[in-house]
Amino acid sequence: MRVLGIESSCDETGVALVDGSGDGVPRLLSHALHSQISMHQAYGGVVPELASRDHIRRVLPLTREVLAGAGLSLQDVDVVAYTQGPGLAGALLVGAGVAASLGAALDRPVLGVHHLEGHLLSPFLSADPPEFPFVALLVSGGHTQLMRVDDVGSYELLGETIDDAAGEAFDKSAKLLGLPYPGGPHLSRLAEQGQADAFALPRPLLHSGKPDFSFAGLKTAVLTQVRRLEQQSGGITEGQRADLAASTQAAIVEVLVKKSLLALKETGLKRLVVAGGVGANRHLREQLNAACERRKVRVHYPELHLCTDNGAMIALAAALRLQRDMGALTRGGGFEVRPRWDLASI
């Protein structure tokens, strides 16, 4: 069973092909990705209309690239999967429309996939895939959640952010520091040059005893520090900027690590999966690895190139679902997107 996956939820167009034959972990045959970062940089953030138009331009050439990389043709595809949500409505409609069209033209079934489920299951494509059950820390640009995962489709929400996500805290703090879009990776690189204890920044809800998150207060604290430094000396030196970046990263990472450990303790599980774009952060991986090693907990990550949004995770999630329930497939007809979609509800 070969599954073609299309991801178009925001500012990356991803297409991939996986082989989900049998009951083992599906195998990635080929994947291709186009990032829109350079296009959106001029605006300091994602412009939805531009994102949608660029998906239209990219998805078919990427599909041809993926098929050529696998040495296959469209006729060799058994199922077409696409990101159904959550995400930008217009961007989602591009992937859904292409998937539905391919399904109709090829007489192949089509399957909509939850974007966060794709992230959550993406470590199964790594060299060290996890085993069920596990606790999952989902940390992406707009989502920060802790889930108990007992199997594909069996998810229990343990905790989530009550305001900004960790990725938003990175990006918004980076913007306050005058760093270019996308801010998170730039802040992390700058943090390597700074002192993490230079500024006493808050760790919201750190000691709440619950696996929930809050990062809006941290962003406000960064703004306060920036204004204070500007008032004192008329500007921020590069050293101060690096120190504030390092202090910001340390605060975010400390909260993520402590809440993950709390979720592991509450569930009694000894396996943690980290997924989403922030999961590529080197400091987060170092701190989680050290903390989990002390507690004899296994940690699993996606490969670095699969941390961002990509078609491989969509094709994988579809293949894993179909291994368990082929009845999820539909042929022909219209298509549906869900810009807002709770993962725990699927």
Rank of each mutant, 00 (worst) to 15 (best):
I236V: 09
E238T: 09
R228F: 10
K219P: 02
K219H: 14
K219G: 01
I236H: 11
L218P: 01
I236F: 12
T220Q: 02
T224G: 09
L229N: 08
R227P: 06
K210M: 11
I236G: 15
R241C: 08
G234P: 01
E230N: 09
P211K: 06
T237Q: 09
S233D: 11
L218Q: 00
G235F: 14
V222H: 00
L244R: 02
Q225P: 04
E238I: 02
T220R: 04
K210Q: 13
A216C: 08
G234M: 01
F215P: 00
S233W: 13
R241S: 09
A242Y: 13
T237I: 05
A221R: 07
I236L: 15
L229C: 08
G217D: 00
D212P: 10
Q225L: 01
E230M: 11
E238K: 12
D212Q: 11
Q232P: 00
Q231M: 03
Q225K: 14
G217F: 07
G234V: 03
F213C: 10
R227N: 11
L229K: 09
T237L: 05
E230S: 14
Q232L: 04
G235T: 03
G239P: 02
T220W: 03
Q232M: 06
L218K: 01
Q231G: 07
I236Q: 15
A242V: 07
S214I: 13
V226E: 03
T237N: 06
L223I: 11
K219S: 06
A216E: 02
V226W: 00
A242S: 09
Q240F: 13
A216K: 10
Q232C: 01
F215Q: 04
G234Y: 01
P211A: 15
G235C: 06
Q240R: 11
D212S: 12
R227D: 10
A216D: 00
Q231V: 01
K210I: 14
L229E: 14
D243T: 11
E230K: 15
A221K: 07
T220S: 12
A221S: 10
T237M: 01
Q240C: 12
T237A: 11
E238N: 13
